Simulated assay, not measured.
Amino acid sequence: MPRLARSGYALCLIVATVAATLIATAPAASAVPARANGHRVTVMVHGFDREADISCSGAWNSAESLLNANGWGDVVTFGYYNKATNCDLRLRGTTDTRIQEVGRQFAWTVYYLYSSRDVAIDVVTHSMGGLVAKAAIEGVNRYGVGKPAPDLSGLTVNQDDLGATTWPRDWPPFLYIEDMVTFATPHQGIGSAVVTACAITHEQCSDMRPGSGFISWLGKQPLSQIGTDYTFLASRHDDTVSADSATNKRTAHHWALYGANADGGTLTHTSIRNTSTGDWQASYGGEFSDEGEGTYPAPLPRMMDGLYDQQAH
């Protein structure tokens, strides 16, 4: 069973402040930053919302509060719907904006604000947000690596309307995402009748069907140019995403599948991203983790461990 991280020191990183409009020159990276267990900038990406009006602060309040209380001082929320609210960074898309395109926009945002400045980040996601973040890495690996760093001098970036940015038409040449924790992400898609019906009217639901072109393109755990350590957290009682899909058939570097707590409580598709207390039973394992079944940390403390102290590769 993985040990819980303790806040030993704070790694202070100066990053762009959230403002209506930011104009800056993104310098070309000189070298891949060293991997370092600690408190990196953490970007949080929400999941699918049929009404496209999710609140980023509402979705991540519990997780962000816990991170802040334990030494993470730089937590940033990324939203991708035009009606999303309280997001530090927002792409004004709709439920018909394909996940790959959201991933491309996310890739350029991370590249511009962080990777091009030699700053590595960590990412926390819920549900479809994990597909968005993985798509960013996969797209860079397929279509960006090896290309010269673009000249972004004089680029105007409105952090509340990222889609208005005139990014280059392809993908960034590299990304530095060191750790990624996903809550209830459908890595292999969602096969329920609800999603099948949703796919008729919402392209993002179509992308999330098992065997879709997007799911086939995405692969398993794409690695960014710093290497990316994955932790997949899932619940046996999630009525939206299956255990196999949320753990990617237990192929992650670290995965956990939660059962009930000592009081018989269970984790839903949504509550798994908000739960920080309780004595939980879970099965757990992974490429870089011991395998077993028994008492396990609650999801949010396990998230902190996934961001703080994992095996580099």
Results as ranks from 00 to 15, higher is better:
T97A: 01
R90N: 15
Y112C: 06
W108M: 03
Y114R: 13
A120H: 13
D88W: 08
D118G: 15
T94W: 01
D88M: 12
L91Y: 14
R98Y: 12
L89E: 01
T109V: 11
I121S: 07
T94M: 00
G71L: 01
A107I: 03
N82A: 13
S115P: 06
Y80C: 05
L66Q: 07
L67M: 11
T109C: 13
D74R: 09
T97E: 02
G73E: 01
Y81C: 08
G93M: 12
R92Y: 06
I99R: 01
D74G: 02
S116L: 06
L91W: 11
R92E: 07
A120R: 05
T94V: 11
G93T: 09
R98L: 12
L91E: 06
G73P: 03
A120W: 10
W108G: 06
E101T: 14
A120I: 10
G93C: 12
F106G: 07
R90Y: 09
Q100Y: 11
Y111I: 07
A69M: 04
G71K: 00
Y111Q: 07
Y112S: 09
T97N: 07
Y112W: 15
A84Y: 00
C87A: 13
T97P: 04
F78S: 04
T109E: 10
D88L: 11
D74K: 08
R90Q: 14
D74S: 08
T85D: 03
N82S: 14
A120Y: 08
T94D: 01
V110M: 14
L113C: 12
N86Q: 12
G73A: 05
V110D: 10
T77H: 06
L66F: 09
R92V: 08
D118N: 15
Y114W: 15
T97I: 08
N70G: 03
Y114N: 14
L113T: 05
W72A: 02
F106R: 10
Q105S: 07
L89I: 11
T95H: 07
